[in-house]
């Protein structure tokens, strides 16, 4: 191919053809493309604003109310639960909406077929969606919202959550949201229409309350328990426990949720490898 470059008169000996045709072919370029889409367009700040309005605006309103009426909650630290509940609720819904366009949207629009006419493996295509969107969501939906929430807690509520514990709590939210990200990705690989791709994760999100009520023994296995208090459960969700330095019984649910996410990625890869575009 170098000879070919010379033939075309570029006179360029520095630019060389990439070689190799393994599973990771095209991954670097595809991830770069995803990250540009997140961070070199208005996407990142519009996402930060949307999630700030959906999560932290309510936290701010509640915090202002707690400040004016200190008796409303047992302790000011409890107001952090509002942030955790909204992260646990809005995060999965938001990520399902964002991610539905990642695979099923591209299959429908034809951009997936266009990209896959270039030298990129299907594994790289799917992994670029996972990596790019995870980083985008981690930055705009988790980290940025965490920083805003921390500032609200410090300046409005008047508490100083332990920084490392708070960061660990955000990590739990990230795992929780990652579960929905990979679930949506997998459904995007399986289905050709957007409705089930958005609908199933959201239905699963809301059905956990019902399942938790009907079968209390299932509660410890619900990913929701990472971020939000379950029905009839006196235990703090893991994220809240870490943010307030409360005792943590087990990390099994966290590990299980992460493993489930990896399984979703595996299924997405398997399905997409066999898919006709």
């Amino acid at each position: 191919m170098d000879a070919n470059l010379t033939q075309h008169g570029t006179g360029n000996s520095m630019m060389v053809m990439k070689t190799g045709s393994g599973w990771s072919r095209g991954l670097d370029n595809a991830v770069r493309g995803e990250l540009k889409e997140w961070f070199q367009t208005r996407t990142w700040w519009s996402q930060v604003l949307i999630w700030a309005a959906s999560i932290n605006l309510i936290f701010l309103i509640v915090s202002l109310s707690v400040r004016q009426n200190p008796g409303e909650m047992n302790s000011p630290t409890e107001s952090l639960m509002i942030f955790n509940i909204f992260m646990g609720l809005v995060g999965p819904i938001g990520v399902s909406i964002v991610m539905q366009s990642a695979v099923v949207g591209e299959k429908k629009s034809g951009t997936a077929a266009w990209v896959l006419s270039k030298p990129i493996s299907r594994i790289s295509f799917i992994l670029s969606k996972v990596i790019g969107n995870s980083l985008g969501i981690a930055a705009t939906m988790v980290l940025a919202q965490g920083i805003i929430a921390y500032l609200i807690a410090y300046f409005v509520v008047g508490i100083t959550p332990p920084p490392l514990g708070f960061l660990a709590g955000l990590g739990v939210h990230l795992v929780h949201i990652f579960f929905y990200l990979t679930l949506t990705l997998m459904l995007g690989a399986i289905f050709e229409k957007a409705a089930p791709v958005i609908g199933i994760p959201i239905a699963f999100l809301f059905s956990q309350n019902f399942l938790s009520s009907a079968f209390p023994k299932l509660t410890p296995f619900m990913p929701q328990s990472l971020a939000m208090p379950g029905n009839n459960s006196s235990e703090l969700p893991l994220a809240m426990a870490l943010m307030t330095e409360s005792p943590v019984d087990t990390y099994l649910l966290l590990i299980g949720t992460f493993i489930a996410s990896l399984i979703f990625i595996g299924i997405a890869l398997w399905v997409f490898q066999r898919q006709e575009l």
Partner: peptide
């Protein structure tokens, strides 16, 4: 973006 799938270099 397209060129990035084929070339590496400066």
């Amino acid at each position: 973006y397209t060129a990035g799938f084929f070339f590496k270099g400066p």
